[in-house]
Design a protein around this nucleic acid. Structure first.
Lengths: 193, 193
DNA sequence: TCACGCATGTAAGATGTTACATGATTAA
DNA sequence: TTAATCATGTAACATCTTACATGCGTGA
């Protein structure tokens, strides 16, 4: 019973709850819509999907040679799978693992010229600006889909979270640049290497 | 040459660049000051520290029975270690791995009663409020230390980032609650289980 | 004496990524 | 015909967490 692939299992279940899908399309969804808070690789997806079937949480309709490519495998969620998913959804979420390499580098900033940090912050700002734009793009898309009676309100909420967080990151980086360039430079000079 | 323990190696180097330390104190620092953007476990720390010594990036002064406990091992960074650290600091940071379980659950929200989501968001808000408070506490502490000529400006910057991000998270969650309770409830009702 | 904090360490397992292999279809 | 995209999969490796074992010092 302790043989699951951690949370990936529930990610797959949640994706299949939307509609029957292939591992490939699940990957695409996660890349596009989820990248700002979750990521999965094929090396996780395909084995997990097989496990779901083995556990009776999904069924695979092997459409060999039907569609395109080498014969795609469409997975659908079962009732047991839906039950498993909603049980998990009820549990209080706790995993919040973030690893921001840039913050690590900033925090070790006294070991490097401030100009290097300013450079890192510049690309960080650009990256976050792009992400905010992307997220707003998704929100617009979801709004349009809603006009066609396709409801994506929950995905829209996560995109909104992206807007909030990426904007905050950008604002922080701008402020950090200001603080570093105002007083960080002479700091390093007086110390030398 | 591909035998490093990933980024943990540089985290250790950065910690030792501040002052000679034991693995235990490094863990404490990371838990307190870094938890919002990085985490390391003893299972990573101790082996990594040994590797640093093997690679000549640090030296261990084995103060057996000197301090308290079973005999602590104090590690210090070498010149080669400092060089390695600053080389790494120069490289553009890219790792940004975040896994927010709560966003996953929100995005699968249509499979559960909205009340469950509202509950998750409530504890999320409380958690972020506490974190903002903690971060502000650190900033105050760092300011006081600066009056005593102990410079923590770079750590202060990362704490500031915490303030920005956690505030954004809290604000988003408040907004999300509003959106869900305004229209999410009847949505689920019309669908049934 | 007993619990707790300090302190180090390892083994096992869980988790995750990367690189590779395969091969069909589609569009240029 | 060639490249890209669709599509599945595995093996090797890298990484990370968890649980455990050890044991001293300090204060209640």
């Amino acid at each position: 019973m302790k043989e699951n692939t951690g949370i990936s299992k529930y990610v797959m279940l949640g994706m299949l709850a939307r509609m029957p899908q292939t591992g490939y399309t699940i990957k695409k969804w996660i890349e596009n819509e989820y990248s700002h808070f979750w990521q999965e690789s094929f090396g996780q997806i395909y084995p997990t999907l097989k496990k779901l079937v083995a556990e009776g949480l999904a069924v695979s309709s092997d459409n060999t040679q039907s569609g395109n490519g080498r014969g795609q495998i469409v997975y659908s969620i079962t009732d047991t799978g839906r039950k498993e998913l909603s049980d998990w959804l009820r549990k209080e979420p706790k995993i919040e693992k973030l690893r921001y390499e840039i913050l690590l580098k900033i925090s070790f900033g006294e070991n490097i010229e401030p100009e290097v940090l300013l450079g890192h912050l510049d690309s960080f700002i650009r990256r976050n600006e792009k992400l905010v734009k992307d997220m707003n793009g998704y929100i617009e898309l979801f709004k349009k889909l809603k006009e066609q009676d396709i409801d994506c309100s929950y995905s829209q909420l996560t995109a909104l979270c992206g807007v909030y967080v990426y904007s905050a990151m950008r604002d922080w980086a701008i402020e950090a640049k200001k603080i570093i360039s105002e007083k960080g430079v002479d700091d390093h000079e007086t110390k030398g290497s």
